[in-house]
Design a protein around this nucleic acid. Structure first.
Length: 848
RNA sequence: GCGGGUGUGGCGGAAUGGUAGACGCCGGGGACUUAAAAUCCCCUGAGCUUUGCUCGUGCGGGUUCGAGUCCCGCCACCCGCACCA
C-alpha cells in the first residue's frame, strides 16, 4: 500500500461524486427499515456559508451517517430560509434584485456545502422564496383563516418619519432610524395576526412531553408563555367611569398607592388636555421593544383623576406611565411600590408613599425599605383582614372577597401575545387577501394561488415596492367582481420556517404535503440549531404544527421529538494600530485583521507589512465571529488548505457541542496531523497478519461501544477523544490479526466524522462497496468488562495510595489490603481507626 | 430591567457524590536527518523541607466519611426579550 500523504484536494471530490452517483443519501420512504429524520435548522442564504453553519451541519451529518450505518432509513434534507430583509438591503445598497441576489447566494452556498461532503438528500431541496413553496404556505394560511386562527387588528410598528417606512427592531438604534438617523415613532397599523394564544395552555402542557429537549429551552418557553393567576377588577374613577385593571399580586392590594395606565389607553387618550397630549407624544418616541421600555427611565403624567380603592375607599391618583404595556392584561395596573420594582422607582421619582404590606416576619411590619422593592415571599402586614396570612393564602382570600362582593374575579392571564405576521416589505410571502370596498377583506380563492410576487420592482425609493407597483395590487374582488386591491403586507419569515420540515417529507405539486408521507417521517427525530432560536422559531413551529393538527391535516402536535442547541464558533479579535506613513508614529487608529492575515509566535500575533517588517497585533477578547470584527474564517479557504475531513474533525473536537468553540490555527493543524496519522495507520493494514491481541481487542470493542454511545448522546468531543486513544493503542500494538482488524474497523468508526478519508482507507484495505453504506461494527459485550480494577485508598478524605485488585473483591479483603498499605500506615501514624467506608471496585476511605 | 445559561492547568476540555486535570493544543527535552520539514519517544497544575506533603475546579458560606458535582448568598461573561434570522 501507498506511503504517500492523504490528498484531500483529489480524494474529497472523488468520493463526493461517488456518493452522488450511488444516490446514497436519498431517502426512500418506501423502505422497510426503521426511519430516522435528522434535521438542522436551514440557513438564511446570506451569500457564504459561515463556520457556524459548518459546525451545525457537521453534527447533524455525523448523526445521519451513523444512523445509516445502524440500519436506519435516514432523511437528512437541506433547504433555504430565503425570504427576509438582507435581500432588500442588498437591493438598496447594490442595486441588485432581491430574487437574483438570493438565488445566486443559494447556488454559491450549495456548492460550498457539497465541498464539505455532507450526506444530504438534495433531491428534496426547497427554497422558501419560490412560488412552489410559498404558494402552499398561502393555502395553509387560508386554511387557518377558515379555522378562525387568523385575524386583523391594529398594532404598533416602528415608524421612520424621514424614510417613510416601517423599521425592524434591529434597524432602530438608540431610538433612531439606522439609515435616516431620525427619531423613530410608534405608529398603529392594521395588521394580520395568528391566534397562538388559543393554544397557550396546550403549548405549555406540551412542554412536559418533550423529554428530549434541553430543560433550559423548556423553561424559557414556559416563562415566555407566562401563565399567571391573578385578579381582574375595576376601579371607579372620580369622573364616574370604570377602569379595569389586572394584577398578579392581589394580596398586596392594601399597598396600592396609585393607578397607572398605558399611554395609548382609552383613559389617557380621552384627556382633553394639552400637557397630557404632549406626554403621550413623548411616550410614542423610541422603539417598541420590551428591553427598551423596561430600561427606559420611568416617566408619568398625573391625569388629575383618582380611583377609589375597593376596600379602603381611599382616592388613588391615576397616572399615565410609560412602563405600562397596553398589550398585557388590561393596559392598566394598580401600583404597589413596596413590592414591585417598577412601581417602586416610579413612586420614588414622583414622591408617592411606599407602604409595606408584606414582611419576612410580622415584627418587621414597619421596617423601612432600602433602595429596592421587596417582591419576595412573606407574611401580610398593614392589610386589615389579610394581616398574618401567607402571600398565597392572601391572594386566594382577596380573589374570593372580590368575587363574593361582585367587583372582580380571579383570572388566568398569559404573557404570550398573538403572533403578528404582517410585514410591510416586498421580499416575503404575499398574504393572500383582497381588499374590496364593498365586501371588505376577502380571501384569494385557492384555485388562484399562488399569489406571485412581481419581479419588476425597484428599491430606489424607500417604502414597500408592492405599494408602488403600477399593476400588481390592482385586481378584482373574488366575491363581487368589482375593482379591488391586493393586500400588500407579506408574511413574517418565521411562518416560512414553521412548516418547512413537513415539506421536506413530501413535495406534491398540488398540496403543501402528503399526510401519509408526513406520518411516515415525522416527528423529526433529532433537530439541531442555535440556542438563539430557543423561543420564537421553536414556539412558532410548535404552534403551527398544533394548528394543522387542530384542522385535521396531521395527527401529531410536536414536530421535534429531540432538540439540541449547539454553541457558537468564536475567535479573538485582532487589531493593528496604524502608523503615520511619514513619521512612523502611532496614530491611535486601529483596524481589524482577518485571522489569516496574522502570523503567530506562541501566543503573540504579528502582521507582516509590505516591507516585510513584523508589526505587533493586539489580540482581543474571544467572541462570536462577525464580519464587522473580521474575526471570521472562511470555510472554503480552510477546506482548500486542509480538506473537508480535517475541518469536520475540528468542528467535533475538544469543545462540547452545546458550548462555544474557539477557532484556532493550531487546532486545525492538529486535526490535519491526525488525518495524516490515520492515513499512515491505514497503510499499515496487513490482511495476512496472524495472532490474537486480547488487550487490543478489548480496547477496540470498548471504543466501538463508547463511540456509539457518545454519538447518540451528541457528545462528539468524547467520541473524538476515544478515537485518539484507540489510534494510540493500535500504534503501540505489535503486529497481529487483531491489529489489522482494528485498523480496518477504525475506518468504519471514523466514517461518520471523516467520510472521505474513511472511504479512501476502506477501498485501500479491500473493503467492499462504500464504507458510508457499511454496517456499524458489532460489539461483543463480554469484551467490555475489565477483570482488574484500581481502587483508591483515602485517609481523611485524601488519596494516600491505589491498589490494583481483581474485580469484585469482597469488602473485608479490600479493607485489609488498604490498611496494610505502607502509605496508609504512615499517614495514620498510629491513630485509631474509627470507621472504614468501602465502595466495592472503587475506593476505601479510612476515617480516624 | 426581566427570563435562561456558563465559569476546572498557559489554552479547549474530561470526571454515575468516590483517584480532579482523560484526550487534544501550546511549551520543554530527546531520536531520526548534511540540514530542514514531516514523523516518533519522554516531560508538562502550583508550591514545598520531594520514598512524600500542602494547596488547587469564578468568590464566600454550608451539607457529607468524601463536593468540580448537592444547598444558600455573591461576581463575571454569554443568549433571548415578540419586525434580525
Amino acid at each position: 500500500m501507498t506511503d504517500t500523504r492523504f490528498d484531500p484536494s483529489t480524494a474529497d471530490g472523488r468520493w463526493q461524486r461517488a456518493w452522488d452517483e450511488a444516490r446514497c443519501f436519498e431517502a426512500d420512504s418506501n423502505s422497510a427499515r426503521p426511519k430516522s429524520y435528522v434535521l438542522e435548522m436551514f440557513p438564511y442564504p446570506s451569500g457564504r456559508i459561515h463556520i457556524g453553519h459548518v459546525r451545525n451541519y457537521t453534527m447533524g451529518d455525523v448523526l445521519a451517517r451513523y444512523k445509516k450505518m445502524r440500519g436506519f432509513e435516514v432523511l437528512h434534507p437541506m433547504g433555504w430560509d430565503a425570504f427576509g430583509m438582507p435581500a432588500e438591503n442588498a437591493a438598496m445598497e447594490k442595486g441588485v434584485h432581491p430574487g437574483g441576489w438570493t438565488r445566486e447566494n443559494i447556488a454559491n452556498m450549495k456548492a460550498q456545502l457539497k465541498r464539505i461532503g455532507f450526506a444530504l438528500d438534495w433531491s428534496r431541496e426547497i427554497a422558501t422564496c419560490e412560488p412552489d413553496y410559498y404558494g402552499h404556505e398561502q393555502a395553509l394560511f387560508l386554511d387557518l383563516y377558515e379555522a378562525g386562527l387568523v385575524y386583523r387588528r391594529q398594532s404598533e410598528v416602528n415608524w421612520d418619519p424621514v424614510d417613510m417606512t416601517v423599521l425592524a427592531n434591529e434597524q432602530v438604534i438608540d431610538g433612531k432610524g439606522w439609515r435616516s438617523g431620525a427619531d423613530v415613532e410608534k405608529r398603529k397599523l392594521d395588521q394580520w395576526f395568528l391566534r397562538i394564544t388559543q393554544f397557550a395552555d396546550d403549548l405549555l402542557e406540551g412542554l412536559g412531553t418533550l423529554e428530549k429537549w434541553p430543560d433550559k429551552v423548556r423553561l424559557m418557553q414556559e416563562n415566555w408563555i407566562g401563565k399567571s393567576q391573578g385578579l381582574e377588577f375595576s376601579f371607579t374613577l372620580s369622573n364616574g367611569e370604570s377602569l379595569p385593571v389586572y394584577t398578579t399580586r392581589p394580596d398586596t392590594i392594601f399597598g396600592a398607592t396609585f393607578v397607572a395606565v398605558a399611554a395609548d389607553h382609552p383613559v389617557a387618550r380621552s384627556l382633553d388636555n394639552e400637557a397630557a397630549r404632549a406626554f403621550i407624544a413623548l411616550c410614542k418616541k423610541g422603539g417598541t421593544t420590551a428591553a427598551e421600555l423596561e430600561t427606559a427611565e420611568k416617566l408619568g403624567f398625573d391625569t388629575g383623576l383618582t380611583a377609589r380603592h375597593p376596600f379602603t375607599g381611599a382616592p388613588l391618583p391615576v397616572y399615565i406611565a410609560n412602563f405600562v404595556l397596553m398589550d398585557y392584561g388590561t393596559g392598566a395596573i394598580m401600583a404597589v411600590p413596596g413590592h414591585d420594582q417598577r412601581d417602586f422607582e416610579f413612586a420614588t421619582k414622583y414622591g408617592l408613599p411606599i407602604p409595606r404590606v408584606v414582611a419576612a416576619d410580622p415584627a418587621d411590619a414597619n421596617k423601612p425599605f432600602g433602595t429596592e422593592a421587596e417582591a419576595g415571599d412573606g407574611v401580610l402586614v398593614n392589610s386589615d383582614f389579610l394581616d398574618g396570612m401567607a402571600v398565597e393564602a392572601a391572594k386566594r382570600e382577596v380573589i374570593a372577597r372580590a368575587e363574593a362582593e361582585g367587583w372582580g374575579k380571579g383570572t388566568t392571564v398569559w404573557r404570550l401575545r398573538d403572533w403578528g405576521v404582517s410585514r410591510q416589505r416586498y421580499w416575503g410571502t404575499p398574504i393572500p387577501f383582497i381588499h374590496c370596498a364593498a365586501c371588505g377583506v376577502v380571501p384569494v380563492p385557492k384555485d388562484q394561488l399562488p399569489v406571485v410576487l412581481p419581479e419588476d420592482v425597484d428599491f430606489k425609493t424607500p417604502g414597500n415596492p408592492l405599494l408602488r407597483h403600477s399593476t400588481w395590487k390592482h385586481t378584482t374582488c373574488p366575491k363581487c367582481g368589482a375593482a379591488a386591491e391586493r393586500e400588500t403586507d407579506t408574511l413574517d419569515t418565521f411562518v416560512d420556517s414553521s412548516w418547512y420540515f413537513l415539506r421536506f417529507a413530501s413535495q406534491p405539486a398540488d398540496r403543501p404535503f402528503d399526510p401519509e408521507e408526513v406520518a411516515k417521517w415525522l416527528p423529526v427525530e433529532q433537530y439541531i440549531g442555535g440556542i438563539e432560536h430557543a423561543i420564537l422559531h421553536l414556539l412558532y413551529a410548535r404552534f403551527w404544527t398544533r394548528a394543522l393538527q387542530h384542522i385535521g391535516q396531521i395527527d401529531f402536535a410536536e414536530p421535534f421529538a429531540s432538540l439540541f442547541t449547539q454553541g457558537m464558533v468564536t475567535h479573538a479579535t485582532l487589531e493593528l494600530e496604524y502608523e503615520d506613513p511619514l513619521t512612523g508614529e502611532k496614530t491611535g487608529k486601529t483596524s481589524y485583521l482577518l485571522p489569516e492575515e496574522v502570523e503567530w509566535q506562541g501566543d503573540k500575533a504579528f502582521w507582516r507589512d509590505a516591507k516585510n517588517n513584523l508589526k505587533p497585533v493586539k489580540v482581543g477578547r474571544v467572541i462570536k465571529m462577525s464580519k464587522s470584527k473580521k474575526n471570521v474564517v472562511d470555510p472554503d479557504t480552510i477546506i482548500a488548505r486542509y480538506g473537508a475531513d480535517a475541518v469536520r474533525w475540528f468542528m467535533l473536537s475538544d469543545s462540547p457541542p452545546e458550548r462555544d468553540l474557539p477557532w484556532s490555527e493550531a487546532g486545525i493543524e492538529g486535526c490535519w496531523r491526525f488525518v495524516q496519522r490515520l492515513w499512515r495507520l491505514f497503510g499499515q493494514y496487513d490482511g495476512a497478519a496472524e495472532g490474537e491481541d486480547k488487550a487490543l481487542l478489548r480496547k477496540l470493542h470498548q471504543t466501538v461501544a463508547a463511540v456509539a454511545e457518545d454519538i447518540e448522546a451528541l457528545s462528539f468531543n468524547k467520541a473524538v477523544a476515544r478515537l485518539y486513544e484507540l489510534a494510540s493503542a493500535i500504534d503501540k500494538a505489535a503486529l497481529s490479526a487483531t491489529r489489522a482488524h482494528a485498523i480496518r474497523t477504525m475506518a468504519q468508526l471514523v466514517s461518520p466524522m471523516m467520510p472521505h478519508l474513511a472511504e479512501e482507507g476502506w477501498v485501500a484495505m479491500g473493503g467492499e462497496g462504500l464504507v458510508a453504506m457499511a454496517a456499524w461494527p458489532a460489539v461483543d459485550p463480554a469484551l467490555l468488562v475489565e477483570d482488574e480494577v484500581t481502587i483508591a485508598v483515602q485517609h481523611k478524605g485524601k488519596l494516600r495510595d491505589t491498589l490494583t485488585v481483581a474485580k469484585g473483591l469482597p469488602q473485608a479483603e479490600l479493607e485489609a489490603l488498604a490498611l496494610a498499605s505502607a502509605n496508609v500506615q504512615r499517614s495514620l501514624d498510629g491513630a485509631p481507626v474509627r470507621k472504614v467506608i468501602v465502595v466495592p471496585d472503587r475506593l476505601v476511605n479510612i476515617v480516624t
